[in-house]
Design a protein around this nucleic acid. Structure first.
Lengths: 205, 205, 205, 205
DNA sequence: AATGAATGAGTGTTCATTCAT
DNA sequence: AATGAATGAACACTCATTCAT
């Protein structure tokens, strides 16, 4: 998050201005987009939050759509890496998915599909598919993990990709203020969700 | 400049008067809001879609926030009524929830939480709570059905309200184009979701 | 002012709706125009203040300019009558002008000239001259009184019409909040103004 | 629809850049506000009068209230400086006040109080007091001059601040078209006003 | 006599985008 | 590398005005 602030190697930094500024714009904009969605974020507000001018943002990103696209890819890549690390660790599938759930539910953000729908009219076909691809990668990652577990008999057989989507969809209850914040912690909710997914509703005879 | 334009006189045109303009505006706007979210829908576009002028929209609704609020309440009431009818019909809980799932997934719309987040900055506290209340009513309806089933031993015990939220969250996979539209019909997806929710992932010994 | 409310003759009033409504619109609008000027007063606000609809206002007055014109003439006629009564009463000129000053300064209103300038672009030549004539009548009334006093040696000779304008102009200090409201009452201010006008600044040798 | 229109690209045009756009906007807007008042001046008209776009006006002034406030302060500062120079020159008080009168009456403008009343609903408390302060400064300047003259016996004793207000109020006869323009020059009127103020109406015995 | 419904023309304001430096 | 100046397009909202009933 603020890795670049704290850990400063001694000596004059190489590219003080250029790459650093671009990275900061990217990070800041990504945060704002995830928080407020496409339309509500103005390039002016991005610039201000970065302490630069609007024109500077344009210097690095040709237009709002480009910035948005790169932001999403940045965020999705981070999510992919994080998830990848978790699922490839040791432990039972259930245990690992619980960690995935906790992490996912702690990253506050606008729901993906909605943001895409909002933005899509301003994006080119290319941009849309490029984002979709990055997003799909995550689902495929999770899907493949489920598939492997099915093959090994760890869980029941079924449509692994659909399962992956259902799983991520379940995690969006994080956004319901009535559930989280009031009565349960995120960890509790994540735990109950995974338990439910594993056990099902049907009472054992 | 506009000398060559046909100068329409202001004021009410002679023979317009459809039956219920207000209802039509409400319905049209509701559809557009659900499809595109708060910001992207301009009152101009609402007016055009209804075949009236912007000023006419303002004649019936004081401002965009009011229109939005009434639209959402309109939609939520319909959803509540629909759901209410289904859950109070005969059949096992699982059967009834399948119907709920099918209906819900066929109503295309932006995810609720995201839309609210997007719009909330423009709404008054009152408007927000009024919408929230309407929305909560649906969850409580579903939650109460789950609770009753728990009490009667039809399903396992658990947090019925959390379950209600999880259930509706699961239905949002409808928005994922990779799943629906390509490989599965909505009905298939709904069926598999309900099956999964009931049976769980754990393989029977 | 509220003469029509208090003094109600017994029996069914003749023209309950028509003339009464028109009078009320006129009075209300006049008050609003004097208070806020031409542009700031919307016909909607006039209607609301009267408890009727905008269309009703249009029923009695063809358009805003007409309403404005009639309002001003109404107000100016009242001012004329009031002034006329005062100046034709007994007492020295100075005494009578003091009463005029007090009355004038107690009627809160936007300065005349400014209001006219604001409104004039929307008025026809006819309307403007008709208002100007009514206004001029007041000045001529006061001017004639001054002239007579000059002829009779009660005051120094001079341009009586200019003097009339100066006199009314002096009374506009009523609008300066720093003077009235804080340190002086309207009556005190009126007194000092008249004293000053009579005695002049020059110290007697 | 606009296919046949020449589609100007957005963004800064190639060779515009006059020297000081902001100053010109300020001056032009100040003139328009003084001439027509707050409501009647649209930012569009200001822009047009300057040969720039509305958006350019917004580039320099955040909103109409800000522009209005800065305009008034600009005008008031000029008036203060002008008056200050005159009153601190040599000559008798009467001579100097005659010059003040002439200058003031030659600057065509809407009456101050009225303009403030019209605009005040759109201004913040801060803006109002900031303007009021600037205006009060002028009256205090004139008041102090009168006070000094009283102390030195050059004129009769009295409320110097009230006198200052009366004096400026008298000068508003400049706005009465029936007086100026037709029969008298501004200089004549100014002369007669000052004469009257000094000598008073009372005939010497 | 009075009104509800509808409209065209504006007004203030925001924003993505461009260009010269 | 970064910015200040400028713009066209859109948007939320208001208002005077008209017409049918």
């Amino acid at each position: 998050m603020s890795e670049d602030q704290i850990k400063r190697k001694p000596g004059r930094p190489k590219g003080t201005g250029s790459i650093q500024t671009m990275q900061q714009i990217l990070r800041t904009a990504a945060f704002l987009f995830m928080e407020q969605g496409f339309e509500k974020v103005s390039l002016e507000s991005v610039a201000q939050a970065c302490g630069v001018t609007k024109a500077s943002v344009y210097y690095y990103f040709n237009n709002k759509s480009v910035l948005f696209t790169e932001c999403l890819q940045f965020v999705l890549k981070m999510a992919y890496d994080q998830t990848s690390k978790i699922v490839s660790s040791t432990g039972s599938l259930k245990e690992r998915m619980l960690v995935v759930a906790e992490r996912h539910m702690n990253n506050a953000h606008v729901e993906f599909e909605t943001m895409m729908r909002e933005a899509s009219s301003g994006l080119t076909e290319e941009q849309i598919t490029s984002i979709r691809t990055s997003e799909q990668a995550i689902h495929e990652l999770i899907g493949s993990v489920f598939q492997k577990a099915m093959d090994e008999g760890e869980i029941k057989r079924g449509d692994s990709m659909l399962l992956a989507h259902i799983f991520t969809a379940m995690l969006t209850v994080r956004n319901r203020k009535e559930i989280i914040n009031n009565e349960k912690t995120v960890e509790q909710a994540a735990f109950e969700i995974v338990e439910l997914l594993w056990a099902g509703l049907e009472p054992r005879s």
